[in-house]
Design a protein around this nucleic acid. Structure first.
Length: 287
DNA sequence: CCACAGGACGGCT
DNA sequence: AGCCGTCCTGTG
């Protein structure tokens, strides 16, 4: 474990609030000084921006520079993505202006799977609380600058949890789903490393859908927000259906809008960038 | 106290 | 194949 710090000057498309509050992650918290602290793998990261300069500190195992560039998706040119999307229509222009600086994080696949199983029928404060309690109970403790943090448990660590343990941590009916998915990962019924080698998004999606608790929406979130990084998916929750109906479909009852209609509309409008378009629209609509 | 919010899943047609 | 009630907990 070592302490590191880096400064990256003049970074474009990088807004911490928009990155951390757009619903893709659950382990980052804002501090009084406006910086954010989160746990990434076996590292605690503290990050802040002053104008366009990014200041990052870490305490952990990994090389900070490498970790930062990968986790925050720095190799991707968000400026050109935004330029393409902006040209589509005034709705995209407006939502990009609102959520400018969103980046889609490369989050650990295992952690993302469990986190989004927990997200089903759930709200963000409660999801964050559950994940924090799971980490505290089954992850590793890290002490840094007078604060205590916990890593997200590995599959082996979470394998120690009984269904009852999970229920007591507040997972509700999701307890069995997390338990069984953990079993399937430990049994290698699904090989998470192999998923990264698969080219076809549809095949990876079908693999994820075999996991208990992973339905269409959760699978798409995993594909978009984890290291799988597929931008050609379009997670449809109540907010996305709402915003797509309001802007493009105009059905008098948004609840009656078929998901297939939403999906084909998204593909027509945004093509292979529909995943990132979804994030701008979702974040804008939620305010 | 009740109503509601939020996806997966299984049982039903 | 599509529809709908149920699963659990926090909030208004």
């Amino acid at each position: 474990m070592k302490e590191q710090s880096i400064v990256i000057k003049n970074v474009k498309s990088f807004n911490l609030t928009h990155i951390f509050e757009c619903g893709q992650c659950f382990r980052w918290n804002e501090n009084i000084d406006g910086s954010y602290t989160g746990v990434v793998g076996n590292n605690v990261i503290n990050i802040k921006t002053i104008d366009k300069d990014v200041f990052v500190k870490s305490f952990g195992e990994d090389d900070l520079s490498r970790l930062f560039y990968y986790y925050f998706d720095m190799e991707r040119d968000y400026e050109s993505i935004k330029n393409k999307l902006r040209k589509i229509d005034e709705h995209m222009e407006k939502s990009i202006l609102y959520g400018d600086g969103i980046r889609l994080l490369n989050q650990d696949l295992w952690e993302t799977i469990i986190s989004f199983i927990i997200s089903a029928n759930n709200n963000i404060p409660r999801i964050k609380g559950i994940i924090e309690r799971i980490s505290k109970r089954f992850g590793n403790k890290i002490e840094w600058e007078g604060n205590t943090y916990y890593t997200f448990p590995t599959a082996e660590q979470l394998g120690k949890a009984s269904v009852e343990d999970l229920r007591n941590l507040g997972l509700g009916f999701r307890d069995v789903r997390v338990y069984e998915t953990t079993c399937k990962v430990l049994n290698k019924e699904i090989d998470l490393d192999k998923l990264h080698d698969e080219v076809s998004t549809e095949i990876v999606r079908e693999e994820l859908l075999k996991l208990p608790g992973v339905g269409p929406k959760v699978a798409d979130c995993i594909l978009l927000f984890s290291t799988l990084k597929r931008f050609d998916v379009f997670p449809i929750d109540v907010w996305v259906r709402r915003v797509m109906n309001d802007l493009y479909i105009h059905n008098e009852n948004e609840n009656k809008v078929d998901k297939k209609v939403v999906l084909s509309m998204a593909n027509d409008k945004f093509g292979d960038l529909c995943g990132i378009a979804q994030q701008y629209l979702f974040y804008w609509k939620r305010g």
